[in-house]
């Protein structure tokens, strides 16, 4: 891999990371490196300073926080997939994490990295939208909590400031919720061509993968359900108001169709759970 030239600094605390990130305009936080490094290798991204937050203590692991499950931003996907608390209180997340990439990716990539990258093709943002999760960010001004619904702004763009560090993901406990995760791809290791995460806990929330420039909810389908539509009817509204991307794997039109199939299947499966 031949990225452009960059400086590297390792932060030993969140405060130091924030300070380092603030010290240079084109700085970027590095955790597992599974989203950022491929972009640098292709010279699509060329940050001048990489701030390695990978060894900051206390950012890894799952904590029971009463109403919510707190997942440290540096927690690896494989650890999310096998964590007992996650399995009990947010089983959808365990399922989603178990299907990310391949075993190497799951053992290096981090939950927080995936969220902060904000890739519409990633599964965790969609799951967080469906679960109504929120994200804890620390910046020069201190800590703030950003709801998932306000976090994803556009293609690889989030409401995280360049000098903020995502430290924790808060997932409301939903042990009794009905849920489903549907992922359609050509190779198991790939990003989903289209995916959907369905959570039914009184209301139904549906997060979509790869259906817009940013991770989004299937608002059309959610509203239809709230108005009493059947799963099949609601699924027909899965891509209402969305502009799905078109690429080698699927045209925009095919993505709309896939979203309707997957949302219907997701609702049916959740209904049985």
């Amino acid at each position: 891999m031949i990225p452009a030239k960059f400086d590297y600094a390792r932060a030993s605390s969140v405060e130091e990371a924030v300070r380092l990130l603030s010290s240079e305009e084109d700085s970027k936080a590095l955790a597992g490196g599974h989203s950022l490094l491929p972009l640098m290798r292709l010279r699509i991204a060329a940050p001048t300073l990489l701030v390695d937050i990978g060894r900051i203590k206390g950012l890894s692991g799952v904590r029971d926080k009463g109403d919510a499950v707190g997942i440290g931003a540096l927690t690896r996907h494989a650890d999310v997939a096998s964590d007992a608390t996650v399995g009990r209180e947010a089983p959808l997340l365990a399922k989603v994490a178990s299907q990310i990439g391949d075993p190497q990716v799951r053992h290096r990539g981090t939950f927080g990295g995936s969220i902060a990258h904000g890739d519409p093709a990633s599964d965790l943002p969609a799951a967080c939208l469906a679960l109504g999760a929120s994200f804890v960010a620390v910046g020069p001004e201190g800590e703030r909590v950003i709801p998932a619904d306000d976090f994803f702004q556009g293609f690889l763009t989030t409401s995280l400031e360049a000098n903020e560090v995502l430290t924790e993901i808060l997932v409301p406990k939903a042990a009794g919720a009905r849920w489903s995760f549907q992922k359609f791809n050509r190779r198991a290791q790939d990003w989903a061509i289209v995916g959907c995460a369905v959570v039914q806990n009184g209301l139904t929330r549906i997060g979509l993968v790869n259906m817009e420039a940013a991770p989004v909810r299937a608002k059309g389908a959610e509203e239809a359900l709230a108005d009493g539509a059947s799963a099949g009817e609601a699924a027909g509204h899965a891509s209402d108001g969305l502009e799905p991307p078109s690429d080698l794997n699927a045209s925009s039109e095919f993505r709309r169709h896939l979203a309707s199939v997957l949302v219907r299947r997701g609702l049916e499966e959740a209904g049985k759970s």
Partner: peptide, 23 residues
């Protein structure tokens, strides 16, 4: 895959789908 201008669209193994054991 190429576009009409002769640009290769599958220039990485993310886009050029070599299957793996899981397939």
């Amino acid at each position: 895959s190429y576009d009409s201008q002769g640009n290769l669209l599958t220039s990485t193994l993310v886009d050029y789908l070599v299957p793996a054991a899981s397939e």
